[in-house]
């Protein structure tokens, strides 16, 4: 049941994407209850998720970037 602080933070991040297992969530929740620092980190992590959602971010795919780079290199 005991996990390291770093592992707890990783689980916190994983839970932001809804991909933590029930066992990982249990471990995380116990850790958050015991350590305020982890609770603060969780709050910030949730805030980051909400900011990313609010910003409606767009990104080019890696293949689009590669193609863009090749075209640009031809002009260099």
């Amino acid at each position: 049941m005991k996990i390291s602080r770093e592992k707890a933070k990783e689980l916190c991040t994983k839970s932001q994407y809804g991909e933590a297992t029930w066992w990982e969530l249990l471990q995380l929740n116990v850790y958050v209850l015991l350590f305020k620092e982890c609770a603060d980190f969780s709050a910030k992590n949730r805030k980051l998720t909400s900011l990313c959602d609010k910003a409606n971010l767009n990104t080019l795919s890696e293949s689009e970037k590669e193609s863009m780079k090749k075209d640009l290199e031809k002009h260099l």
Binding site: N58, T59, L60
Partner: peptide, 26 residues
């Protein structure tokens, strides 16, 4: 040589916000 890695997404977001079309923005 660093433009795509460093600025492509930043510029893409700026463009998408104005033309509302990902292909045109690209």
């Amino acid at each position: 040589e660093k433009w795509v890695d460093q600025y492509a997404d930043y510029l893409f977001n700026y463009a998408v916000a104005r033309v509302s079309d990902a292909e045109i923005a690209k």
